[in-house]
Design a protein around this nucleic acid. Structure first.
Lengths: 158, 158
DNA sequence: CATAAATAGTTAACATGCAAACTATTGTTG
DNA sequence: CAACAATAGTTTGCATGTTAACTATTTATG
Protein backbone atom coordinates (compact mmCIF):
# COMPACT_ATOMS: atom_id res chain seq x y z
CA UNK A 1 0.00 0.00 0.00
CA UNK A 2 0.97 3.63 0.44
CA UNK A 3 0.99 3.77 -3.35
CA UNK A 4 -1.55 6.55 -3.34
CA UNK A 5 0.64 8.49 -0.96
CA UNK A 6 3.66 8.03 -3.13
CA UNK A 7 1.69 9.13 -6.15
CA UNK A 8 0.77 12.29 -4.26
CA UNK A 9 4.39 12.90 -3.49
CA UNK A 10 5.20 12.60 -7.13
CA UNK A 11 2.60 15.23 -7.95
CA UNK A 12 3.82 17.56 -5.23
CA UNK A 13 7.40 17.23 -6.35
CA UNK A 14 6.31 18.02 -9.85
CA UNK A 15 4.43 21.08 -8.75
CA UNK A 16 7.28 22.36 -6.62
CA UNK A 17 9.78 21.97 -9.40
CA UNK A 18 7.56 23.58 -11.97
CA UNK A 19 6.48 26.47 -9.79
CA UNK A 20 9.93 27.28 -8.56
CA UNK A 21 11.31 27.11 -12.07
CA UNK A 22 8.62 29.46 -13.28
CA UNK A 23 9.42 31.86 -10.49
CA UNK A 24 13.13 31.77 -11.24
CA UNK A 25 12.48 32.28 -14.92
CA UNK A 26 10.21 35.22 -14.14
CA UNK A 27 12.82 36.76 -11.85
CA UNK A 28 15.70 36.32 -14.25
CA UNK A 29 13.87 37.40 -17.39
CA UNK A 30 15.04 41.02 -17.10
CA UNK A 31 18.63 39.78 -17.10
CA UNK A 32 18.07 37.75 -20.24
CA UNK A 33 18.70 34.51 -18.37
CA UNK A 34 16.77 31.27 -18.02
CA UNK A 35 16.59 28.99 -15.02
CA UNK A 36 19.17 26.54 -16.31
CA UNK A 37 21.67 29.35 -16.69
CA UNK A 38 20.66 30.87 -13.36
CA UNK A 39 21.17 27.59 -11.53
CA UNK A 40 24.69 27.34 -12.84
CA UNK A 41 25.54 30.97 -12.13
CA UNK A 42 24.22 30.65 -8.60
CA UNK A 43 26.48 27.67 -8.09
CA UNK A 44 29.50 29.39 -9.56
CA UNK A 45 29.04 32.42 -7.31
CA UNK A 46 29.79 30.34 -4.24
CA UNK A 47 32.72 28.34 -5.59
CA UNK A 48 36.12 29.30 -4.27
CA UNK A 49 38.32 27.13 -6.44
CA UNK A 50 38.76 26.74 -10.13
CA UNK A 51 35.70 25.08 -11.63
CA UNK A 52 35.70 22.72 -14.59
CA UNK A 53 32.54 21.73 -16.44
CA UNK A 54 32.77 18.27 -15.02
CA UNK A 55 32.58 19.75 -11.52
CA UNK A 56 29.28 21.38 -12.40
CA UNK A 57 27.98 18.11 -13.81
CA UNK A 58 28.83 16.44 -10.51
CA UNK A 59 27.65 19.15 -8.16
CA UNK A 60 24.37 20.01 -9.85
CA UNK A 61 23.70 16.44 -10.93
CA UNK A 62 23.13 17.31 -14.55
CA UNK A 63 24.12 15.62 -17.77
CA UNK A 64 27.20 16.78 -19.62
CA UNK A 65 25.25 18.09 -22.60
CA UNK A 66 22.94 20.12 -20.38
CA UNK A 67 25.90 21.84 -18.76
CA UNK A 68 27.69 22.25 -22.06
CA UNK A 69 24.72 23.96 -23.63
CA UNK A 70 24.00 26.28 -20.70
CA UNK A 71 27.63 27.37 -20.46
CA UNK A 72 27.82 27.98 -24.18
CA UNK A 73 24.84 30.27 -23.84
CA UNK A 74 26.29 31.99 -20.76
CA UNK A 75 29.53 32.57 -22.62
CA UNK A 76 27.68 33.98 -25.61
CA UNK A 77 25.84 36.37 -23.30
CA UNK A 78 29.12 37.41 -21.71
CA UNK A 79 28.63 36.01 -18.21
CA UNK A 80 31.38 33.39 -18.23
CA UNK A 81 34.60 32.67 -20.02
CA UNK A 82 35.82 29.17 -20.76
CA UNK A 83 39.58 28.72 -20.86
CA UNK A 84 41.38 25.57 -21.81
CA UNK A 85 43.14 24.16 -18.79
CA UNK A 86 46.85 24.23 -19.59
CA UNK A 87 47.63 21.15 -17.52
CA UNK A 88 44.80 19.08 -18.99
CA UNK A 89 43.83 20.34 -22.36
CA UNK A 90 40.62 18.32 -22.45
CA UNK A 91 39.15 20.38 -19.64
CA UNK A 92 37.64 23.87 -19.58
CA UNK A 93 38.08 26.19 -16.64
CA UNK A 94 35.00 28.31 -16.08
CA UNK A 95 35.52 31.92 -15.05
CA UNK A 96 32.90 34.50 -14.13
CA UNK A 97 33.11 37.82 -15.96
CA UNK A 98 32.65 41.24 -14.37
CA UNK A 99 29.20 41.31 -15.94
CA UNK A 100 28.32 38.19 -13.96
CA UNK A 101 29.71 39.59 -10.72
CA UNK A 102 27.59 42.69 -11.18
CA UNK A 103 24.33 40.76 -11.40
CA UNK A 104 25.15 38.41 -8.53
CA UNK A 105 23.02 40.26 -5.94
CA UNK A 106 20.02 40.27 -8.23
CA UNK A 107 20.39 36.58 -9.07
CA UNK A 108 20.80 35.60 -5.45
CA UNK A 109 17.79 37.62 -4.40
CA UNK A 110 15.65 35.82 -6.95
CA UNK A 111 16.62 32.45 -5.51
CA UNK A 112 16.33 33.62 -1.93
CA UNK A 113 12.80 34.71 -2.59
CA UNK A 114 11.98 31.28 -3.96
CA UNK A 115 13.51 29.62 -0.91
CA UNK A 116 11.65 31.86 1.49
CA UNK A 117 8.36 31.12 -0.23
CA UNK A 118 9.04 27.41 0.06
CA UNK A 119 9.82 27.68 3.75
CA UNK A 120 6.73 29.67 4.70
CA UNK A 121 5.03 28.12 7.68
CA UNK A 122 7.54 25.31 7.88
CA UNK A 123 9.64 25.02 11.03
CA UNK A 124 13.34 24.30 10.99
CA UNK A 125 12.64 21.01 12.70
CA UNK A 126 10.22 20.04 10.01
CA UNK A 127 12.69 20.97 7.33
CA UNK A 128 15.26 18.70 8.93
CA UNK A 129 12.81 15.81 9.14
CA UNK A 130 11.74 16.47 5.61
CA UNK A 131 15.26 16.42 4.28
CA UNK A 132 16.09 13.23 6.11
CA UNK A 133 13.10 11.43 4.71
CA UNK A 134 13.49 12.93 1.31
CA UNK A 135 17.10 11.89 1.08
CA UNK A 136 16.14 8.30 1.88
CA UNK A 137 13.51 8.18 -0.83
CA UNK A 138 15.92 9.81 -3.21
CA UNK A 139 18.56 7.25 -2.32
CA UNK A 140 16.10 4.42 -2.84
CA UNK A 141 15.71 5.63 -6.38
CA UNK A 142 19.37 6.19 -7.00
CA UNK A 143 20.20 2.69 -5.86
CA UNK A 144 17.37 1.00 -7.71
CA UNK A 145 18.20 3.03 -10.75
CA UNK A 146 21.79 1.92 -10.80
CA UNK A 147 20.80 -1.65 -9.90
CA UNK A 148 18.78 -1.97 -13.05
CA UNK A 149 21.00 -0.46 -15.71
CA UNK A 150 18.77 2.62 -15.85
CA UNK A 151 21.09 3.71 -18.65
CA UNK A 152 22.87 7.00 -17.97
CA UNK A 153 24.14 9.03 -15.07
CA UNK A 154 23.43 8.05 -11.49
CA UNK A 155 24.32 10.12 -8.50
CA UNK A 156 25.99 7.36 -6.53
CA UNK A 157 28.60 9.92 -5.55
CA UNK A 158 28.04 9.65 -1.79
CA UNK B 1 18.01 30.74 6.93
CA UNK B 2 17.01 27.20 6.01
CA UNK B 3 17.89 28.15 2.48
CA UNK B 4 20.44 25.39 2.26
CA UNK B 5 17.83 22.90 3.37
CA UNK B 6 15.40 24.07 0.76
CA UNK B 7 18.07 23.83 -1.88
CA UNK B 8 18.64 20.23 -0.84
CA UNK B 9 14.94 19.56 -1.14
CA UNK B 10 14.99 20.96 -4.62
CA UNK B 11 17.78 18.60 -5.56
CA UNK B 12 16.04 15.63 -4.03
CA UNK B 13 12.81 16.41 -5.81
CA UNK B 14 14.75 16.66 -9.01
CA UNK B 15 16.41 13.32 -8.45
CA UNK B 16 13.19 11.57 -7.55
CA UNK B 17 11.39 12.84 -10.58
CA UNK B 18 14.21 11.99 -12.92
CA UNK B 19 14.88 8.56 -11.47
CA UNK B 20 11.27 7.52 -11.42
CA UNK B 21 10.77 8.74 -14.95
CA UNK B 22 13.81 6.78 -16.08
CA UNK B 23 12.47 3.67 -14.40
CA UNK B 24 9.06 4.08 -15.97
CA UNK B 25 10.60 4.66 -19.36
CA UNK B 26 12.74 1.57 -18.93
CA UNK B 27 9.75 -0.53 -17.91
CA UNK B 28 7.52 0.68 -20.71
CA UNK B 29 10.11 0.51 -23.47
CA UNK B 30 9.11 -2.98 -24.55
CA UNK B 31 5.56 -1.72 -25.08
CA UNK B 32 6.76 1.12 -27.26
CA UNK B 33 5.54 3.68 -24.75
CA UNK B 34 7.15 6.62 -23.00
CA UNK B 35 6.49 7.91 -19.51
CA UNK B 36 4.19 10.71 -20.63
CA UNK B 37 2.00 8.20 -22.42
CA UNK B 38 2.22 5.74 -19.54
CA UNK B 39 1.13 8.35 -17.02
CA UNK B 40 -1.97 9.06 -19.02
CA UNK B 41 -2.79 5.40 -19.64
CA UNK B 42 -2.40 4.64 -15.95
CA UNK B 43 -4.84 7.39 -15.18
CA UNK B 44 -7.34 6.25 -17.81
CA UNK B 45 -7.28 2.68 -16.48
CA UNK B 46 -8.88 3.79 -13.24
CA UNK B 47 -11.48 6.16 -14.65
CA UNK B 48 -15.05 4.95 -14.54
CA UNK B 49 -16.75 7.73 -16.47
CA UNK B 50 -16.29 9.20 -19.89
CA UNK B 51 -13.05 11.13 -20.03
CA UNK B 52 -12.44 14.25 -22.09
CA UNK B 53 -8.98 15.66 -22.72
CA UNK B 54 -9.70 18.58 -20.49
CA UNK B 55 -10.31 16.15 -17.62
CA UNK B 56 -6.84 14.75 -18.06
CA UNK B 57 -5.39 18.24 -18.08
CA UNK B 58 -7.11 18.91 -14.75
CA UNK B 59 -6.42 15.60 -13.08
CA UNK B 60 -2.78 15.20 -14.06
CA UNK B 61 -2.03 18.91 -13.84
CA UNK B 62 -0.54 19.09 -17.30
CA UNK B 63 -0.80 21.68 -20.05
CA UNK B 64 -3.25 21.18 -22.88
CA UNK B 65 -0.55 20.79 -25.51
CA UNK B 66 1.21 18.11 -23.46
CA UNK B 67 -1.98 16.08 -23.22
CA UNK B 68 -2.87 16.70 -26.82
CA UNK B 69 0.48 15.45 -28.02
CA UNK B 70 0.55 12.36 -25.81
CA UNK B 71 -2.96 11.34 -26.82
CA UNK B 72 -2.18 11.85 -30.47
CA UNK B 73 0.73 9.49 -30.09
CA UNK B 74 -1.33 6.98 -28.11
CA UNK B 75 -3.99 7.04 -30.81
CA UNK B 76 -1.39 6.53 -33.52
CA UNK B 77 -0.05 3.53 -31.62
CA UNK B 78 -3.56 2.13 -31.27
CA UNK B 79 -4.01 2.44 -27.50
CA UNK B 80 -6.81 5.00 -27.43
CA UNK B 81 -9.53 6.29 -29.72
CA UNK B 82 -10.71 9.89 -29.68
CA UNK B 83 -14.34 10.42 -30.61
CA UNK B 84 -16.01 13.75 -31.05
CA UNK B 85 -18.54 14.28 -28.30
CA UNK B 86 -21.90 14.53 -30.01
CA UNK B 87 -23.34 16.90 -27.43
CA UNK B 88 -20.33 19.24 -27.48
CA UNK B 89 -18.47 18.96 -30.71
CA UNK B 90 -15.47 20.85 -29.39
CA UNK B 91 -14.66 18.04 -26.99
CA UNK B 92 -13.02 14.64 -27.53
CA UNK B 93 -14.07 11.60 -25.58
CA UNK B 94 -11.12 9.34 -24.90
CA UNK B 95 -11.69 5.59 -25.13
CA UNK B 96 -9.24 2.79 -24.36
CA UNK B 97 -8.81 0.16 -27.06
CA UNK B 98 -8.57 -3.59 -26.48
CA UNK B 99 -4.86 -3.28 -27.09
CA UNK B 100 -4.66 -0.90 -24.14
CA UNK B 101 -6.72 -3.16 -21.91
CA UNK B 102 -4.39 -6.04 -22.69
CA UNK B 103 -1.29 -4.19 -21.52
CA UNK B 104 -2.93 -2.79 -18.40
CA UNK B 105 -1.38 -5.35 -16.00
CA UNK B 106 2.08 -4.75 -17.37
CA UNK B 107 1.74 -0.98 -17.17
CA UNK B 108 0.41 -1.08 -13.64
CA UNK B 109 3.17 -3.41 -12.50
CA UNK B 110 5.78 -0.98 -13.81
CA UNK B 111 4.33 1.84 -11.74
CA UNK B 112 3.79 -0.33 -8.70
CA UNK B 113 7.42 -1.27 -8.76
CA UNK B 114 8.39 2.39 -8.82
CA UNK B 115 6.10 3.12 -5.89
CA UNK B 116 7.41 0.22 -3.86
CA UNK B 117 10.99 1.32 -4.45
CA UNK B 118 10.15 4.81 -3.26
CA UNK B 119 8.52 3.49 -0.10
CA UNK B 120 11.37 1.18 0.93
CA UNK B 121 12.27 1.71 4.55
CA UNK B 122 9.71 4.46 4.99
CA UNK B 123 6.94 3.89 7.51
CA UNK B 124 3.34 4.73 6.83
CA UNK B 125 3.51 7.36 9.54
CA UNK B 126 6.48 8.96 7.88
CA UNK B 127 4.73 8.94 4.54
CA UNK B 128 1.78 10.75 6.10
CA UNK B 129 4.03 13.35 7.68
CA UNK B 130 5.92 13.70 4.46
CA UNK B 131 2.80 14.27 2.44
CA UNK B 132 1.47 16.82 4.86
CA UNK B 133 4.63 18.86 4.79
CA UNK B 134 5.11 18.42 1.09
CA UNK B 135 1.61 19.59 0.35
CA UNK B 136 2.18 22.74 2.38
CA UNK B 137 5.36 23.59 0.51
CA UNK B 138 3.62 22.82 -2.73
CA UNK B 139 0.74 25.09 -1.76
CA UNK B 140 3.14 27.86 -0.84
CA UNK B 141 4.40 27.74 -4.39
CA UNK B 142 0.99 27.50 -5.98
CA UNK B 143 -0.20 30.53 -4.08
CA UNK B 144 2.92 32.59 -4.63
CA UNK B 145 2.92 31.58 -8.25
CA UNK B 146 -0.61 32.79 -8.79
CA UNK B 147 0.02 35.89 -6.67
CA UNK B 148 2.73 37.07 -8.99
CA UNK B 149 1.24 36.51 -12.42
CA UNK B 150 3.55 33.53 -12.93
CA UNK B 151 2.01 33.43 -16.41
CA UNK B 152 0.27 30.16 -17.18
CA UNK B 153 -1.55 27.38 -15.45
CA UNK B 154 -1.77 27.21 -11.69
CA UNK B 155 -3.37 24.39 -9.82
CA UNK B 156 -5.57 26.52 -7.62
CA UNK B 157 -8.25 23.90 -8.16
CA UNK B 158 -8.63 23.01 -4.50
C1' DC C 1 56.76 2.78 -26.34
C1' DA C 2 52.48 1.46 -28.48
C1' DT C 3 48.08 0.36 -27.97
C1' DA C 4 43.97 0.21 -25.05
C1' DA C 5 41.07 2.37 -21.63
C1' DA C 6 39.42 6.31 -19.32
C1' DT C 7 38.09 11.21 -19.14
C1' DA C 8 36.34 16.06 -20.69
C1' DG C 9 33.48 18.12 -23.79
C1' DT C 10 30.58 18.51 -27.97
C1' DT C 11 27.01 17.35 -31.24
C1' DA C 12 22.78 15.25 -32.78
C1' DA C 13 18.42 13.31 -32.04
C1' DC C 14 14.79 12.94 -29.20
C1' DA C 15 11.32 13.39 -24.92
C1' DT C 16 8.72 16.17 -22.32
C1' DG C 17 7.20 20.33 -20.47
C1' DC C 18 5.41 25.28 -21.15
C1' DA C 19 3.08 29.73 -23.27
C1' DA C 20 1.02 32.10 -27.02
C1' DA C 21 -1.71 32.16 -30.82
C1' DC C 22 -4.82 29.80 -33.47
C1' DT C 23 -9.60 27.17 -34.93
C1' DA C 24 -13.97 25.61 -33.95
C1' DT C 25 -17.78 25.37 -31.17
C1' DT C 26 -20.86 26.78 -27.47
C1' DG C 27 -22.83 30.08 -24.31
C1' DT C 28 -24.27 34.93 -23.07
C1' DT C 29 -26.22 39.20 -23.54
C1' DG C 30 -27.81 43.64 -25.33
C1' DC D 1 -30.62 37.26 -33.40
C1' DA D 2 -25.97 39.34 -33.61
C1' DA D 3 -21.87 40.19 -31.45
C1' DC D 4 -18.92 39.04 -27.75
C1' DA D 5 -17.01 35.85 -24.32
C1' DA D 6 -15.77 31.38 -22.86
C1' DT D 7 -14.29 26.63 -23.68
C1' DA D 8 -11.93 22.39 -26.00
C1' DG D 9 -8.22 21.19 -28.72
C1' DT D 10 -4.32 21.99 -31.95
C1' DT D 11 -0.12 24.07 -33.70
C1' DT D 12 4.11 26.41 -33.19
C1' DG D 13 8.19 27.71 -31.01
C1' DC D 14 11.05 27.27 -27.37
C1' DA D 15 13.38 25.64 -22.74
C1' DT D 16 15.35 22.07 -20.56
C1' DG D 17 16.47 17.50 -19.82
C1' DT D 18 18.23 12.87 -21.53
C1' DT D 19 21.13 9.13 -24.23
C1' DA D 20 24.25 7.78 -27.85
C1' DA D 21 27.93 8.60 -30.60
C1' DC D 22 31.67 11.43 -31.56
C1' DT D 23 36.59 14.10 -30.88
C1' DA D 24 40.52 15.10 -28.36
C1' DT D 25 43.46 14.29 -24.72
C1' DT D 26 45.42 11.82 -20.87
C1' DT D 27 46.48 7.62 -18.32
C1' DA D 28 47.45 2.81 -17.93
C1' DT D 29 49.46 -1.50 -19.39
C1' DG D 30 51.50 -5.37 -21.89
Amino acid sequence: MAETGIKDIWNYAHNIIRSSRQMVNEGLRSLGLGSSEGNILLHLFTQEHEVRQEDIVEDLDLSKPAVSRALKSLELKGFVKRNKDSSDRRASRILLTDKAVQIRPKVESVYNEVYSIAAQGVSGEEVAFFINLFSRVSDNFSQACSAMKCTGRQNNDQ
